[in-house]
Protein backbone atom coordinates (compact mmCIF):
# COMPACT_ATOMS: atom_id res chain seq x y z
CA UNK A 1 0.00 0.00 0.00
CA UNK A 2 1.50 3.34 -0.98
CA UNK A 3 2.05 6.08 1.57
CA UNK A 4 -0.42 8.96 1.72
CA UNK A 5 0.76 10.86 4.77
CA UNK A 6 4.13 11.15 6.47
CA UNK A 7 4.46 13.10 9.67
CA UNK A 8 8.02 13.66 10.77
CA UNK A 9 9.08 14.75 14.25
CA UNK A 10 6.13 17.15 14.66
CA UNK A 11 6.25 19.48 17.66
CA UNK A 12 4.07 22.30 18.83
CA UNK A 13 4.46 24.68 21.74
CA UNK A 14 1.52 26.98 22.51
CA UNK A 15 2.18 30.68 23.14
CA UNK A 16 1.67 30.09 26.88
CA UNK A 17 4.61 27.65 26.87
CA UNK A 18 2.59 24.41 26.93
CA UNK A 19 4.47 21.78 24.95
CA UNK A 20 1.50 19.93 23.48
CA UNK A 21 3.55 17.92 20.99
CA UNK A 22 7.15 16.84 21.49
CA UNK A 23 8.18 15.22 18.25
CA UNK A 24 5.63 12.77 16.88
CA UNK A 25 6.24 10.80 13.71
CA UNK A 26 3.72 8.63 11.93
CA UNK A 27 2.89 7.27 8.51
CA UNK A 28 -0.48 6.52 7.01
CA UNK A 29 -1.18 4.39 3.95
CA UNK A 30 -4.00 4.88 1.48
CA UNK A 31 -7.24 3.37 2.71
CA UNK A 32 -5.87 2.77 6.20
CA UNK A 33 -7.67 3.62 9.43
CA UNK A 34 -5.29 4.71 12.16
CA UNK A 35 -6.60 5.53 15.63
CA UNK A 36 -4.75 7.65 18.13
CA UNK A 37 -5.46 6.95 21.78
CA UNK A 38 -4.25 8.63 24.93
CA UNK A 39 -5.35 10.72 27.90
CA UNK A 40 -7.05 14.05 27.31
CA UNK A 41 -4.35 16.66 27.10
CA UNK A 42 -1.85 14.18 25.65
CA UNK A 43 -1.70 16.20 22.41
CA UNK A 44 -4.05 14.16 20.19
CA UNK A 45 -6.12 17.17 19.03
CA UNK A 46 -3.06 19.30 18.44
CA UNK A 47 -1.54 16.50 16.35
CA UNK A 48 -4.58 16.35 14.04
CA UNK A 49 -4.75 20.14 13.77
CA UNK A 50 -1.09 20.33 12.78
CA UNK A 51 -1.78 18.08 9.81
CA UNK A 52 -4.27 20.45 8.17
CA UNK A 53 -2.60 23.59 9.47
CA UNK A 54 -5.33 24.73 11.87
CA UNK A 55 -2.43 24.73 14.31
CA UNK A 56 0.97 25.62 12.92
CA UNK A 57 3.67 23.15 14.04
CA UNK A 58 6.68 24.78 15.65
CA UNK A 59 8.95 21.98 14.45
CA UNK A 60 8.86 19.04 12.10
CA UNK A 61 7.26 18.49 8.74
CA UNK A 62 4.20 16.97 7.12
CA UNK A 63 4.33 15.26 3.77
CA UNK A 64 1.01 14.69 2.01
CA UNK A 65 0.85 12.62 -1.16
CA UNK A 66 4.59 12.90 -1.68
CA UNK A 67 4.76 16.68 -1.26
CA UNK A 68 6.01 18.57 1.76
CA UNK A 69 3.33 20.90 3.13
CA UNK A 70 3.97 24.66 2.91
CA UNK A 71 2.34 26.79 5.58
CA UNK A 72 1.34 29.83 3.53
CA UNK A 73 -2.38 30.59 3.28
CA UNK A 74 -2.78 29.62 -0.39
CA UNK A 75 -1.13 26.20 -0.10
CA UNK A 76 -3.01 25.51 3.12
CA UNK A 77 -6.37 26.11 1.44
CA UNK A 78 -5.35 23.75 -1.33
CA UNK A 79 -4.28 21.15 1.23
CA UNK A 80 -7.50 21.49 3.25
CA UNK A 81 -9.52 20.84 0.13
CA UNK A 82 -8.09 17.30 0.13
CA UNK A 83 -8.20 16.75 3.89
CA UNK A 84 -11.61 16.80 5.57
CA UNK A 85 -12.15 17.09 9.30
CA UNK A 86 -14.82 15.87 11.72
CA UNK A 87 -15.10 17.54 15.11
CA UNK A 88 -15.99 16.45 18.64
CA UNK A 89 -18.70 19.10 18.93
CA UNK A 90 -19.82 18.67 15.29
CA UNK A 91 -19.20 22.40 14.59
CA UNK A 92 -22.32 22.74 12.47
CA UNK A 93 -24.03 26.07 11.93
CA UNK A 94 -27.27 25.53 13.81
CA UNK A 95 -29.16 28.33 12.03
CA UNK A 96 -28.57 26.82 8.60
CA UNK A 97 -30.26 23.86 6.98
CA UNK A 98 -28.75 20.38 6.94
CA UNK A 99 -28.05 20.72 3.21
CA UNK A 100 -26.35 24.11 3.64
CA UNK A 101 -24.11 22.61 6.29
CA UNK A 102 -23.11 19.76 3.98
CA UNK A 103 -22.51 22.27 1.17
CA UNK A 104 -19.83 23.88 3.36
CA UNK A 105 -17.69 20.94 2.27
CA UNK A 106 -17.87 22.38 -1.26
CA UNK A 107 -16.73 25.91 -0.28
CA UNK A 108 -13.28 25.48 -1.79
CA UNK A 109 -14.92 24.68 -5.14
CA UNK A 110 -17.43 27.55 -5.04
CA UNK A 111 -16.91 30.19 -7.72
CA UNK A 112 -16.06 33.72 -6.59
CA UNK A 113 -19.24 35.21 -8.04
CA UNK A 114 -21.47 32.82 -6.13
CA UNK A 115 -19.76 33.28 -2.76
CA UNK A 116 -21.76 36.26 -1.47
CA UNK A 117 -25.10 34.62 -2.29
CA UNK A 118 -24.86 31.22 -0.59
CA UNK A 119 -25.23 29.78 -4.04
CA UNK A 120 -23.62 26.54 -5.22
CA UNK A 121 -23.37 24.86 -8.60
CA UNK A 122 -25.71 22.03 -9.55
CA UNK A 123 -22.82 19.58 -9.34
CA UNK A 124 -21.96 20.74 -5.81
CA UNK A 125 -25.56 20.31 -4.71
CA UNK A 126 -25.65 16.83 -6.21
CA UNK A 127 -22.47 15.86 -4.41
CA UNK A 128 -23.89 17.20 -1.13
CA UNK A 129 -27.13 15.28 -1.65
CA UNK A 130 -25.17 12.10 -2.38
CA UNK A 131 -23.21 12.59 0.86
CA UNK A 132 -26.48 13.02 2.79
CA UNK A 133 -27.79 9.88 1.16
CA UNK A 134 -24.73 7.90 2.29
CA UNK A 135 -25.28 8.82 5.92
CA UNK A 136 -29.03 8.27 5.64
CA UNK A 137 -30.28 11.81 6.27
CA UNK A 138 -31.38 12.75 2.76
CA UNK A 139 -34.98 13.24 3.88
CA UNK A 140 -33.96 15.74 6.56
CA UNK A 141 -32.12 17.96 4.05
CA UNK A 142 -34.17 21.11 4.69
CA UNK A 143 -34.38 20.85 8.49
CA UNK A 144 -32.39 23.30 10.56
CA UNK A 145 -29.22 21.59 11.81
CA UNK A 146 -29.97 22.54 15.42
CA UNK A 147 -33.24 20.60 15.30
CA UNK A 148 -31.42 17.28 14.91
CA UNK A 149 -30.30 14.95 17.69
CA UNK A 150 -26.61 14.72 18.63
CA UNK A 151 -26.08 11.53 16.67
CA UNK A 152 -27.79 12.99 13.60
CA UNK A 153 -25.75 16.17 13.89
CA UNK A 154 -22.51 14.22 13.81
CA UNK A 155 -23.75 12.32 10.78
CA UNK A 156 -24.24 15.70 9.10
CA UNK A 157 -20.65 16.48 10.15
CA UNK A 158 -19.58 13.27 8.40
CA UNK A 159 -21.60 14.20 5.30
CA UNK A 160 -19.93 17.62 5.19
CA UNK A 161 -16.55 15.89 5.28
CA UNK A 162 -17.55 13.38 2.57
CA UNK A 163 -18.87 16.20 0.36
CA UNK A 164 -15.32 17.50 0.16
CA UNK A 165 -14.43 14.28 -1.69
CA UNK A 166 -11.31 14.18 0.46
CA UNK A 167 -8.31 11.89 0.23
CA UNK A 168 -7.76 11.93 3.98
CA UNK A 169 -10.21 12.20 6.86
CA UNK A 170 -9.23 13.63 10.22
CA UNK A 171 -11.69 12.82 12.99
CA UNK A 172 -11.11 14.54 16.31
CA UNK A 173 -12.99 12.60 19.02
CA UNK A 174 -15.87 12.09 16.56
CA UNK A 175 -18.20 10.33 18.99
CA UNK A 176 -17.14 11.35 22.48
CA UNK A 177 -20.00 13.81 22.95
CA UNK A 178 -22.54 11.05 22.17
CA UNK A 179 -23.93 8.39 24.50
CA UNK A 180 -22.09 5.00 24.25
CA UNK A 181 -24.77 3.27 22.19
CA UNK A 182 -25.17 6.11 19.67
CA UNK A 183 -21.39 6.48 19.59
CA UNK A 184 -20.95 2.87 18.46
CA UNK A 185 -23.70 3.17 15.83
CA UNK A 186 -22.43 6.46 14.38
CA UNK A 187 -18.80 5.34 14.35
CA UNK A 188 -19.74 1.96 12.87
CA UNK A 189 -21.66 3.65 10.07
CA UNK A 190 -18.81 6.08 9.49
CA UNK A 191 -16.20 3.32 9.27
CA UNK A 192 -18.39 1.34 6.89
CA UNK A 193 -18.53 4.29 4.47
CA UNK A 194 -14.81 4.95 4.88
CA UNK A 195 -14.00 1.30 4.10
CA UNK A 196 -16.27 1.28 1.08
CA UNK A 197 -14.68 4.42 -0.36
CA UNK A 198 -11.17 3.29 0.70
CA UNK A 199 -10.55 6.59 2.46
CA UNK A 200 -7.49 7.02 4.63
CA UNK A 201 -8.57 8.03 8.13
CA UNK A 202 -6.78 9.35 11.15
CA UNK A 203 -8.93 9.53 14.24
CA UNK A 204 -8.54 10.42 17.89
CA UNK A 205 -10.57 8.19 20.11
CA UNK A 206 -11.30 8.38 23.77
CA UNK A 207 -12.76 4.90 24.11
CA UNK A 208 -10.19 2.11 23.80
CA UNK A 209 -12.92 -0.41 22.90
CA UNK A 210 -13.96 1.60 19.83
CA UNK A 211 -10.34 1.95 18.74
CA UNK A 212 -9.83 -1.79 19.03
CA UNK A 213 -13.01 -2.52 17.10
CA UNK A 214 -12.66 -0.10 14.19
CA UNK A 215 -8.96 0.52 13.45
CA UNK A 216 -6.34 -1.13 11.28
CA UNK A 217 -3.58 0.25 13.44
CA UNK A 218 -3.40 2.08 16.76
CA UNK A 219 -1.00 4.71 18.00
CA UNK A 220 -0.62 5.57 21.69
CA UNK A 221 0.24 9.13 22.62
CA UNK A 222 1.43 10.24 26.03
CA UNK A 223 2.60 13.71 27.03
CA UNK A 224 3.04 14.81 23.43
CA UNK A 225 5.02 11.77 22.36
CA UNK A 226 4.21 8.58 20.54
CA UNK A 227 4.79 5.78 23.06
CA UNK A 228 3.37 2.78 21.22
CA UNK A 229 2.30 1.65 17.76
CA UNK A 230 0.73 -1.60 16.79
CA UNK A 231 -2.23 -3.69 15.68
CA UNK A 232 -5.50 -3.73 17.64
CA UNK A 233 -4.81 -7.31 18.82
CA UNK A 234 -1.50 -6.27 20.31
CA UNK A 235 -3.15 -3.74 22.60
CA UNK A 236 -2.60 -5.53 25.91
CA UNK A 237 -3.19 -4.25 29.43
CA UNK A 238 0.55 -3.71 29.80
CA UNK A 239 0.55 -1.54 26.68
CA UNK A 240 -2.46 0.41 27.92
CA UNK A 241 -0.69 1.03 31.21
CA UNK A 242 2.24 2.46 29.25
CA UNK A 243 -0.14 4.83 27.46
CA UNK A 244 -2.56 5.76 30.23
CA UNK A 245 -0.32 5.33 33.27
CA UNK A 246 -0.08 2.65 35.95
CA UNK A 247 -3.56 3.50 37.29
CA UNK A 248 -5.17 2.11 34.12
CA UNK A 249 -7.47 -0.78 34.99
CA UNK A 250 -9.39 -1.42 31.77
Amino acid sequence: MPRLLMVDNLAHTYPDGTRALRGVSLALNRGEILSIIGLSGAGKSTLLRCINGLVRPTEGSVEFDGRTVDWDAGSLRHLRRMIAMIFQHFNLIGNLSVLSNVLMGRLSYQSCLMQPFYSFSKRDREIAAAALDKIGLLNEWDKRASELSGGQQQRVGVARALAQEPRLLLADEPVSSLDPLTADTVLGHFVKIVRKEKLATLMNLHAVELARKYSDRILGVREGQCVWQGLPDELTTAVLKSIYGEEYDG
Partner: peptide, 11 residues
Amino acid sequence: GPVEAIQACGG
Protein backbone atom coordinates in the same frame (compact mmCIF):
# COMPACT_ATOMS: atom_id res chain seq x y z
CA GLY B 1 -16.36 25.83 16.33
CA PRO B 2 -18.14 26.47 13.00
CA VAL B 3 -15.46 29.03 12.09
CA GLU B 4 -12.82 26.35 12.57
CA ALA B 5 -14.92 23.95 10.48
CA ILE B 6 -15.13 26.42 7.58
CA GLN B 7 -11.36 26.92 7.75
CA ALA B 8 -10.84 23.15 7.76
CA CYS B 9 -13.03 22.88 4.63
CA GLY B 10 -10.57 25.13 2.82
CA GLY B 11 -12.69 28.29 2.94
